[in-house]
Amino acid sequence: MADKKKKSGGSPTSDDLDKSDQSVILTAQKQHQVITRMAHEIVEKNRNLENLVIVGVVTRGGVLAQRLSSELKRITGAEIPVGTLDPTLYRDDFKQKGAVLAAKITQVPFSIDNMTVLLVDDVLFTGRTINAAITHLFDMGRPKEIQLAVLIDRGHRELPIRPDYCGKNVPTQYVEKIRVRFLECDGKDIVLSGLGDNADGGGQNG
């Protein structure tokens, strides 16, 4: 049991911020700038924000979705509804980690029919999470269009998926870990990368 746990990991805690083998990808200030830039790009591409809704992938995609919504409000005054989605039950690998992944409740309290859905996640990796998230979205309705925004694109795609908005491209080794941390859930805004013994750390299995 202990062995399995180690291999598949749990939620990283704040002490993983102090490990010395990690390098900073985005400082708090940089992170804010990048999110602001992404919001501007979203405004540019979507002339009509009335049809836009944002759905973040739990947990940190949900935080990023909130951030983007507030930025969009600051820039344009428009209130963009935000929901969160957990694609776990749609994953092809929900049991391949030695244990079942804990699922969370999807909370999208609005209709996505004929809307442009901006799907948001913190890190884009293999593309499997996003693939599952898109399948999940189609069970909720028929969106007119789905766009994808991610804070970090770390490469190693296993599916034909690309982001429409990307905060930063980070070339990585497959086993490397990218840790996006947000004030709202981690007490600190930062993005780190490092080679740990836990290649499947929080929020990066896809």
């Binding site: 957990d86 039950l89 749609y90 929900f94 699922a103 969370k104 409740i105 999807t106 069970d139 909720m140």
Partner: peptide, 20 residues
């Protein structure tokens, strides 16, 4: 019980099915 709460939300949707 926590997992069941997630499952309950599926039963409240229009499409009451996941491919899990």
């Amino acid at each position: 019980i926590e997992t069941a709460k997630v499952m309950k939300a599926i039963s409240e949707r229009d499409v009451k099915k996941t491919p899990t």
